[in-house]
Simulated scan of single mutants.
Amino acid sequence: MFTFDQLAGFIAVAEELHFGRAAERLNMTQPPLSRQIQKLEKSIGTELLERDNRKVQLTPAGNAFLDEAKRLVALANRAPVTARRIATGRSGVLRVGFTAASGFSILGPLLEEIAAILPQVDIDLQELVTGEQIQGLLTGELDMGLARPPFDREVFDSHLLYRESMVLAVPSGHRLTDLRRPVEDADLRDEPLIMHSPTKAAYFYDLVVRMHDIRHGNVVHTVSQILTMVSLVAARRGVAFVPHSATLLAIKGVDFLPLSGSDSEDPVELHAIWNRKVANPALRRLLQDLEFRTE
């Protein structure tokens, strides 16, 4: 097998087409350089150079091998730099999970921040519900999640990204839009309701049933995604409890009304979460530069 010293010697001779000048360029004498080329040719199994007392020139095989030799040497020179960049979190891949709702709110600005801090790190985005993100963080398939509570704080560190209120999405022109006050549970007694799935959207389901007196007989659709809920409202299939960030969807035919009876002013939370056993150097660097703190 050939060595990188042999490749460097061959490249120098191929570019200089003169053993003396190539040896001088490499800070060595001509005889050991000649032996390097001979060993390289023996290893490859073909002549790379034609030489006589007056000139040196590349064989067709030498011409073809020169490009590959340059690539190999460049790769060898680049590999330690790449390894150091990955080790310090300046290169590599950061795998981020996010909920659908965060995709039309915080995700864009957060990605801009990540790109500014880690410009040479590739971001692998995966749209997942919170339960799937937690599983991915446990198995190492994800580095960070944008997820809803609750989660095991002994296993995960977190940073609260934002809080927001719940609002009621209603079809444009709905009778509730004429109210001069926040919508109360009694106002929804006879309204068809588009509800969150108790399994696939457990966070919002639990939040809504805790905050409001839900008449389950009024539920006409059960879905898992906020975008689907708002689209069904636009189709005049019913009304829906959604986070305030759903207003950013700007879907025509939908109005958003304030709600009364909330347990808190901004009950909806979104956290950045990550495994306390951080393994990815890019994540360590991101957490350091963003100054995330444990909630």
Rank of each mutant, 00 (worst) to 15 (best):
P281N: 11
K55E: 06
R90D: 11
L94S: 08
P149V: 00
A23I: 09
V93D: 04
I273H: 09
L161R: 06
S158A: 15
P171S: 02
F204L: 14
L176K: 09
I114H: 05
L33H: 00
S172Y: 08
G238L: 09
R210A: 15
E295R: 13
E113F: 01
A100N: 09
N275E: 04
N27R: 15
K42I: 07
H196I: 00
K70N: 00
A201K: 05
T99L: 02
D206K: 03
V268L: 13
V81A: 13
R85C: 01
K70V: 13
P281R: 11
G131S: 11
A235I: 02
A69P: 11
D52K: 05
D255R: 09
I251N: 11
Y203K: 05
A186W: 01
P192T: 03
T130I: 05
V96R: 04
G45C: 04
V233P: 14
G103M: 04
K39Y: 10
A8W: 08
Q288N: 14
A147P: 00
R293D: 11
G145T: 07
V239H: 11
I214R: 09
S105D: 08
T247H: 04
M144P: 09
K55C: 02
V268I: 11
A279Y: 02
D206E: 10
I273K: 08
S231A: 15
T222K: 02
V220Q: 13
L48P: 01
Q120V: 06
A147H: 02
Q288E: 15
M195P: 07
T29Q: 15
F156W: 00
L111Q: 05
R215L: 11
V223L: 15
A282S: 15
Q135M: 08
V13D: 05
Q126E: 05
L146G: 07
I273A: 09
F2T: 09
A100W: 00
L48W: 07
A69M: 09
E269Q: 15
E68H: 14
M166V: 15
D213A: 12
S165G: 12
L128V: 05
A79R: 14
R51T: 14
A64S: 13
Y162I: 06
R285H: 03
A8P: 02
R215G: 00
E184G: 10
E164W: 07
I37Q: 10
A202D: 01
D255N: 13
P80E: 12
E24H: 10
I134R: 03
V268T: 12
L125A: 03
F156R: 08
D289Y: 11
S245K: 03
D67L: 14
D289Q: 15
D206V: 01
